[in-house]
């Protein structure tokens, strides 16, 4: 029911990030077999490695990426952008100079992406861009590198970010004709939970 409502919401408002509601309903720990957990991880990986997500989950050079079908070739963000160690451009050019914080982000074609929270890079330890599925899986399973979260808290983080119109919501509804991350928010949360309930198995 909720999922159906969400799909409807996406159809009505195809452009721009927005407040997205979702539920975290964790299965019993251990109730998901490893094989299903790995299958769920593959779907999670398809989301987090998608350019809508990975372009801003970059390493210690603090340079966001331009990649995906919208760009003729993969490369660093144009205009010599460097978000600095602050990861928000405080030392250089604030991300929010172009990626404005908006109460109702509604991207037109080619507008700079915007969300309801201040635009920024993900913390450096959460690097996804250019990483293998196994590497990202290891990072997301490691509380020292995932913001100190267990698998349920990871799902809650996704829910809460989206409820505030943050980057998770934006990734699934980026507007401006951009290709969204595959699937939808609720499926993504459900997959994270399945993967967690299976004991966070990683490929390889």
């Amino acid at each position: 029911m909720i999922r159906a409502a969400l799909v409807l919401l996406l159809l009505v408002h195809p452009a721009g990030a927005e407040v997205m509601s979702s539920v975290v309903a964790p299965p019993q720990e251990g109730s998901v077999i490893r094989e299903d957990g790995l299958a769920a991880w593959d779907r999670v990986h398809a989301v987090v490695s998608h350019p809508r997500c990975a372009n801003c989950h970059v390493g210690a050079d603090n340079v966001p990426m331009w990649s995906g079908p919208e760009y003729p070739q993969t490369g660093p963000h144009g205009m010599n952008i460097d978000a600095g160690d602050s990861r928000i451009g405080a030392e250089t050019l604030p991300c929010t100079t172009c990626h404005v914080t908006s109460s109702a982000p509604a991207n037109g074609p080619n507008d700079a992406p915007a969300a309801m929270i201040d635009w920024q890079l993900a913390p450096v330890e959460m690097i996804w861009f250019g990483q293998s599925s196994a590497q990202i899986c290891a990072q997301m399973s490691d509380p020292a590198r995932n913001g100190g979260r267990d698998w349920i808290q990871l799902a809650e983080h996704l829910r809460d970010d989206a409820a505030h119109g943050g980057f998770v919501a934006w990734g699934f509804a980026p507007g401006g004709g951009r290709q969204p991350a595959p699937g939808d928010l609720q499926s993504h949360i459900d997959d994270v939970l399945k993967w967690g309930a299976a004991g966070q198995p990683c490929p390889g």
């Binding site: 003729p72 144009g78 205009m79 010599n80 074609p109 080619n110």
Partner: peptide
């Protein structure tokens, strides 16, 4: 090419 994001001419750097 529809706008300057697809037509990056000379920039400062």
């Amino acid at each position: 090419q529809t706008n300057f994001h697809e037509y990056q001419a000379m920039r400062l750097h």
